[in-house]
Design a protein around this nucleic acid. Structure first.
Lengths: 219, 219, 219, 219
DNA sequence: TATGAATGAGTATTCATTCAT
DNA sequence: AATGAATGAATACTCATTCAT
């Protein structure tokens, strides 16, 4: 939140960028997220950015390069909070219960997703079509998240707060619920007016109950 | 399920189609699902189908027409089981508990999704970019599903089997969990070998616990 | 000289070509030879040929392909007379002296070069810049020519009609003199009016004397 | 031969040039000779020269200007030895026979061509495509050479050392043989290892015999 | 003098679509 | 019903050149 506070702040950080380059990124994010990467022409981006088409290629060697320069930092920033040093120590000392921890994480990352919605949309839409992005996503996002959360999940499993289940499954179910909310609210029904706070609360409670060890459901 | 049992059966039903037309659909589904609609050229489809490019346009006025002729029947067939007459009556008489019902639905539709994976993938990928598809999806899929399930959900809510929560939220959370599984297993990690049955069971139990009215989580 | 007698006949032979394809070749040959391959735009070719730019690429995958489809047959036809069966036998029985033979060859190939001047010009201009063309030229033209002529040259060397010198040098010196004439007359000074027949005769006599074994020049 | 001994010395002479300007010329010569003028981009030259693209245009108004600044001095230097004052007097007093004279000239200019090969290559390749260069070449090179040599050739013709033939033809045949050697050895087969000295000697003897008046070839 | 961001015209090539056969 | 040649608009990208710094 320093000098710039655009939706694109995470793309601008630590970079010397000309005004035009910023405008190109801005336009690209907007159109990519609206029509998809493939259906977007560089001509269109140039027009919206108010620059000559050639200018795009002075800054990004190819159209794909432009896509990557949007997606890569978005992925990086998305998991940034998880890869601080002593992640586990901090968390375990800071949050008393799994519920507290989960709430904090969900709300925090949901804020991030909401703020950077167009980039998240691009990310979700394009990953399936670009193998190298898929690899990057698996290596730098999924694996990192699983790695960081394993200890946390196991800790609360030992405490009996959450059910005995492979960490991967815990994460999958949790992520599904959250992404389901984000995608539904912001991407599928952007115009309908949900009571956002209440829906978030419902989602969190759903996850907590779903993972709770307390009541045996089967028999 | 009659004479043909291709992955595309649901596209062929009730239609007189020439051999070439079928091959076109087949090729289109495969390439659309691999590279996305926009990134696919009709030339490519023609080549894979082994027909002349002109032949595609004899059967489908435009490339978009071809896309619709894949997506529309897929949406229709996906909700087909829900729009039979006396849906509620049948269900309530057939399944003793919400769990039974939910299991049946999930397993049935998951089978469908698995079988018709490429079409499902196209559906998911393209809906965000085509407003008319989005409308169609809302009107013919979401609304239908919500409508059909409202009575069911309310019934089990009254019985105390599931928590008191707007039907829409129940459906959203349920659908998120299921789609999260399908997308994760088949689209993001097609090569990794999950224990499919066990993961399905975990997903179902997660949903059931998450929706269970039994244990009060918040104090 | 069958049904077609265009300058391009050697490019059309044995091919089913549409009228437009022929016009494309015609235009390409003309402009390539005037401005060089690199300085020629496909747009320009299309305009001169009276076709849409896309039509070029329906027939030739790339601009380079178009170039090759001009150069390859030209090289092939240029050496065609030399790779008939029993080349040596025919020659030795047909021509009494080396002079007769040389005259026949020179006049014949000079006719060819004159007739197909634009293609020859393209060939000469572009070979230095396309390694694969250079290879093709060495393998399919130079080597073939050297191979075919070795026996002939040796025969006349034994008879004492031509000087004792490596075949390659004999061919180099002969070719230089002929090409020097062709290039000078047709490519460098196309407008000046030489007495063609007399210059050809001078060139031939120059070669014959230059290769004659008779008079010892040194001492 | 003074302070600088680069291949480009003839381009640098009599000029104040910045280091960067020299590097630009150097890069241009190298790339032009490798890929041809048209196929070379100023960007590429700038990169190889290690300067900004704008710098090229500070020194040469256009890309063509850059080409001319290479070709013009090369042509000038090539004929420089011929346009000294009292050219004929010097020659006739210095060389006893036509053979001596021819040998001296050939070896001297061949040295020049060898040393400045890339420029010679550019010259040969580009002259056909630039009318103004062609004019310059005719006026400042060909005509000069013919003019200077006429008296020499006629002198030796009178002495009976060389055959009776128009000076232009004598020059053409001589030049063809020499250029044929240079182009063959350095441009077409740069990698093959000819016995250079011997081939030069063969070429000279070929020319001398070819031009000799001694033996009447035609009966 | 030198830079390098910026440009707009131009490049080869691809595209969805048409149409005569 | 099917072809495939043909199209012209659009595509991503390159070019020589300009200009403010």
């Amino acid at each position: 939140m320093p000098e710039h506070d655009s939706v694109l702040d995470i793309l601008f950080e630590n970079q010397e960028m000309t005004e035009k380059q910023k405008r190109i990124l801005e336009a690209a994010v907007e159109i990519f997220s609206e029509k998809g990467y493939s259906a977007t022409s560089t001509n269109e981006i140039a027009k919206k950015a108010g620059v000559a088409e050639g200018t795009i290629f002075r800054h990004y060697k190819t159209k794909k390069d432009l896509l990557l320069s949007i997606i890569a930092p978005t992925m990086a920033k998305f998991i940034a909070p998880f890869i601080i040093r002593d992640f586990n120590k901090v968390l375990l000392s800071e949050y008393q219960s799994f519920e507290d921890f989960l709430k904090a994480v969900i709300i925090n990352r949901m804020e991030f997703a909401k703020r950077h919605l167009p980039m998240i949309k691009i990310l979700i839409q394009e990953i399936p079509f670009h193998p190298e992005l898929r690899e990057q996503f698996k290596d730098h996002v999924l694996n990192q998240v699983v790695e960081r959360f394993t200890f946390i999940v196991e800790t609360y499993q030992k405490k009996g707060e959450i059910i005995d289940m492979p960490t991967q499954s815990v994460i999958r179910l949790t992520a599904s619920s959250i992404l389901g909310f984000v995608i539904g609210k912001f991407l599928i029904f952007p115009e309908s007016n949900w009571d956002e706070e209440e829906e978030i609360e419902r989602t969190i409670q759903f996850i907590l109950r779903g993972l709770s060890a307390s009541s045996k459901m089967k028999g």
